[in-house]
Structures are given as C-alpha cells and as structure tokens.
Amino acid sequence: MGDLGLFFAILGAALAALVAGAGSARGVGMAGQAAAGVVTDQPDMFGRVLILQLLPGTQGIYGLLIAFVAMNNLGIIGGTPANISLLKGLAYLGACLPMAIVGYISAINQAKAAVASIALVSKRPDQFGKSMLFPAMVETYAIFALLISILAISGVGAIQ
C-alpha cells in the first residue's frame, strides 16, 4: 500500500506541473499570435506586447513550483522516496489539484484578456499600464490556488 500512496502523491505533483503548464502553453500561444499580428504592422510595439504575451505563462511556473515542493517533501528529489500511506498519498494528490485545475482555467482566461489587451495597446499605446491590469486581475486566482496548494502540501507533510 506504501507504493500506492507514493504513486498518488507523485500523480498530484505531475498534474500540477502538467495541467497548469498546458494551460500556460496554450495561453502564451494565443497571446503570441495576437502579439505577432500587432508587430507585423507596428514593430515598435514589440516590447509592450511581449510583456502581455508572457502574463499567462506564470501558471506554468506555479505548477512547477508546486510539483517541486511536493516532490521535495516526498524525498524524490533527494533520491530517497518516503514510504507513505495511501491516505497520505491521496492527500498529496488533493493538495496539488487546486494549482492544476485553477492554473489551467486561469491561464486560458488570462490569455483571452491578454489578447484583448494587446488589441487595446495596438490602438492606444498610451494605455499600456491600464491594459496590463486586465489580464493581471486573473492572476489573483492563480495565486490563491498556489497558496492553498502550498499550505495543503505543508499540512499533508506534517501528517504522521
């Protein structure tokens, strides 16, 4: 049963990196298309639209962080995997899910806001500061998920 516990714990870590990362990859790709469209006719916009394009990329980083913390707790990074119970393994899986699910959804929605903001900047370059705020608002929820996942992993780690 110890192996099964470890399996679920690693599954949680993998999902956090995989699902949030997939959302970011798709989101950055969407924003990248819009950025390329703007730069085609307005090359001087490159710096501004690049920043907006990168915003949906943070969820992938958060997912990676959660996966790293979880695997560190599990002793996988040190090369000595812990022998954990099935319940604890499932608890690790549950702890990683907020980051995985919210990471994916927030990355896609942040990308949509970023695409709209890129269109705004292409027409009103002086509104760059405000245009950053719209997609940045979505980031709040990715950060909430990151916090909960970190707290939950820490809590699960303390379970005997």
Partner: peptide, 10 residues
C-alpha cells in the same frame, strides 16, 4: 487571433 490583431492595426 493573429488575423484580428492584424485587422486592429489596419
């Protein structure tokens, strides 16, 4: 997305 961004410039 790319096409609409180009149109925004135009």
């Amino acid at each position: 997305i790319y096409a609409v961004a180009r149109v925004r410039g135009k």
